[in-house]
Design a protein around this nucleic acid. Sequence first.
DNA 1: GCAAATTAGTTTCAAATGTAACTATTATGC
DNA 2: GCATAATAGTTACATTTGAAACTAATTTGC
Lengths: 153, 153
Amino acid sequence: MQNALQALDLEKFLPYRLSVLAQLVSESLHDLYAGPFGLTVTQWRVMAALGRFAPLTASEVGQRIVMDKVAVSRAVSGLMKRGLVERAADPSDRRRASLRLSGKGLTMHDRIVPIALKYQADLYEALAPAERETLNGLCDRLFAHAKLLRKTA
Amino acid sequence: MQNALQALDLEKFLPYRLSVLAQLVSESLHDLYAGPFGLTVTQWRVMAALGRFAPLTASEVGQRIVMDKVAVSRAVSGLMKRGLVERAADPSDRRRASLRLSGKGLTMHDRIVPIALKYQADLYEALAPAERETLNGLCDRLFAHAKLLRKTA
DNA sequence: GCAAATTAGTTTCAAATGTAACTATTATGC
DNA sequence: GCATAATAGTTACATTTGAAACTAATTTGC
């Protein structure tokens, strides 16, 4: 058997690095709220979107958190069963329903937000303030470019 | 109902941003090799690890690509069924088996590597060379710090 | 104003994934 | 040297996820 012509060093390969970093960070944060509050990542993102922008329809939530409508539907269904989210039918368009946090949901939201912000602050301690700006700028540009590549490809 | 005391703007929240960026990049790359070669992300990572470092045991593959042994086992099983990977029992320890790409697997590997590197190059066009270095350095430090936080927490 | 196409959202079925239990083999402790 | 523990890897079961089909309501085109 011959050797590979050209090998790909995963450890230096950007898509792989981003994936591993994002997974570690996402799981670490999830560990902080999953136990006490029993939420999945998607459920928490739905709650965060509603905490900031309610009322929103399910579609609008999906756009905010970059999540397809099936995932949003399931997350909302779980949150409604636990009484964390309320749904109100839109009289002018009965396909739509506007969603908002219930009182109970808002209480939980307000307890999780500081935990999430604290984790972000802890994470940012690895970087100087100017570097945080830099990182965010670079991520923004990468993201925009990746979207562009996807469309043209 | 009252409003949230403090809201979390997901669009500016680092864990969320990393997650969305990594997902977009990972899916875009997957689109490039999934169709022609029918590989999952995990299968491709196993092949990449073997292309670079074979022979490896399943455990060693798992360490390289940060993947638990069940996922590796399943990916390898799929790759063996397609004749892309070969397994040789280790005579000195019959629990272990060393894995390597077959000739067919190597051929596929050598066709995918340039595609992956091309995608990375396209992605990097969003950034100046110095910025690429900067991004990688910042990601490294964030990753190390996130691992540290996880242990201490 | 009505048939056809769109849109919002849910349900269904298959595939992917995670956790725990399991088999087989090797290492450890007494 | 034999029982116990640890390790490599697989299998089984339950849960999550994704794609496609579906329901219900609204909009569009003629």
